[in-house]
Amino acid sequence: MIVAERKPLQQIEAMIEGFEKILIVGCGTCVAVSMAGGEKEVEELAAQLRIKAKLQGKPRTVDEITVTRQCDKEYLEPLAKYLDEYDAVISTACGAGVQFLAERYEGRIVLPALNTLFIGVTEGPGVWSQRCIACADCMLDQTGGICPMTICAKNLSNGPCGGTNAGKCEVDGEKDCAWTLIYRRMEKLGRLEYLKKIQPPRDYSLTTKPGRHTHEAFRQSQQEEE
């Protein structure tokens, strides 16, 4: 899922400077799980914005609504009947959700409340870690299910650099060296021979931005439409 974190209140305050009627739109999927932009976090942000306004003697009303997802049109549609009332809309979705909301309601000021961090997994309560950089050319079969493009700071695909430090990374001693993990995993799997293959340079043309993908089944109908 997408992992995000709430921006400091100060930044959000600066964005809504001069606006009175605010709507916070939460997102009930990834960022709700990463405790950054779901129902609860929307409520917290609303309370903070209300308190702040009261302390500064500013007029401000803050309404809240959390939709299932902001990255699907269906869930953005019902917002149409409300948005005209507001001076500004704060979205607590990931960057994709914020953009989709802004795109659907082009005339509205849509502001981001989160910083989107990465595609990751839940390590434990309140802790997430990155697992995928969306490289468009998965090589996990070669590396025992551990991604050197993600876990190695230098995205090395042929083995460790000289900075391996007792199995930790020289860039951040808290983090594991990807290639120590890969080697140990492949050893356990009895597949060390696979690691001897020299991996060719990566094909970065696959990740030319902006990415767009059409499912095989929809290609023909898409073409007809166009």
Binding site: G159, P160, G162, T164, W179
Partner: peptide, 23 residues
Amino acid sequence: AVVTPEADPLEPQMLKFEKKIVA
């Protein structure tokens, strides 16, 4: 190329060392 003879662990380092020579 370079190699770190005192790398810990050494095995992955030697794996890359071999690749460097092949390369």
